[in-house]
Simulated scan of single mutants.
Amino acid sequence: MRNRQRGSNLGLLLLASQVFQLGIDNIPPVTLATLGLNVYLFLFPVKPLLQTCLSVREAYLYRDWSRLLLSPFHHADDMHLYFNMASLLWKGIKLERKLGGAWFAYLLSVFSLLTGLVYLLLEMGLTHMTEDSSYSLQCAVGFSGVLFGLKVVNNHYHPGGATYIMGLPIANRYSCWVELILIHIMNPGTSFIGHLAGILVGLLYTAGPLKSLMKTCAGFVTSNGQHGGQQTYYNSSGKSSLFYREILI
Rank of each mutant, 00 (worst) to 15 (best):
L114F: 13
Y135D: 09
L113A: 03
G125P: 02
D132H: 04
S109N: 02
T130Y: 11
L108P: 09
V118C: 03
T115Y: 08
L120S: 02
L117C: 15
A105P: 07
M124A: 11
V118K: 07
Y119P: 05
L122N: 07
H128R: 11
E123G: 01
F104D: 01
A105G: 15
T130V: 05
D132W: 00
D132M: 07
E123W: 00
V118W: 05
L114R: 01
M129G: 13
M129R: 04
T127P: 01
G125L: 12
T130M: 13
T115H: 06
L107E: 10
Y106C: 14
L121Y: 02
M129H: 11
L126G: 05
L126W: 07
T127F: 00
L121S: 03
S134T: 06
Y135I: 06
Y119T: 02
L113Q: 03
L117E: 12
T130A: 09
S112G: 10
L113R: 09
S134W: 04
E131G: 14
T130K: 15
G116W: 05
T130H: 00
L122K: 02
L121K: 07
M124C: 12
Y135K: 06
L113T: 11
S112W: 08
V110Q: 11
A105E: 13
L126N: 04
S112M: 13
L117T: 14
L107P: 09
T130F: 08
D132I: 05
M124S: 08
L107M: 10
F111L: 15
Y135Q: 05
L107Y: 04
G125Q: 04
M124H: 02
S134L: 09
T115Q: 07
S133Q: 01
S112H: 03
D132T: 05
T115P: 01
E131V: 05
M124Q: 12
F111H: 11
D132N: 14
